[in-house]
């Protein structure tokens, strides 16, 4: 019993330590498809291609995070295509980096930012 506990404890500890150094997940700054991340989006709308939105409740995370970005007035997510269409307030100065950060905080993967 004690031996079993010790072995399980060691196993869990080793697994956690081994993975600690592997936690470098994707960050918004190095998402593919985002050129000029610091540039202000010079358009009333932008379309983000987001991957991993596998369920409606999950996708709502993307809405919430994007709506928290100052200057964003509306978000419409198409779960089929992964498109999150973002509307900006008139005169808003939102950068691609801010949009990328919001998707990152939502826990999903940003594949592309399209500005018409």
């Amino acid at each position: 019993m004690t031996y079993l506990r010790t072995m399980i404890g060691i196993g869990l500890g080793v697994a956690a330590l081994a993975l600690t150094g592997c936690a470098g997940g994707p960050t918004a700054g190095d998402q593919p498809g985002i050129d000029e991340p610091a540039a202000v989006v010079d358009s009333p709308t932008a379309t983000l291609i987001v991957h991993g939105m596998s369920c409606p409740l999950c996708a709502n995370n993307v809405d919430k995070q994007l709506l928290d970005v100052p200057g964003v007035s509306g978000v419409n997510v198409d779960m089929g295509t992964g498109e999150a269409k973002v509307k900006f307030m008139p005169g808003a100065k939102v950068t691609k980096q801010q949009l990328a950060d919001a998707v990152d905080k939502s826990g999903f993967t940003l594949a592309e930012v399209r500005v018409p």
Binding site: C22, I49, S54, M79, G82, G107, T109
Partner: peptide, 11 residues
């Protein structure tokens, strides 16, 4: 520590 979003839906 690991998340792989393959496409708009799969993960």
């Amino acid at each position: 520590p690991f998340q792989w979003d393959l496409n708009p839906v799969d993960s």
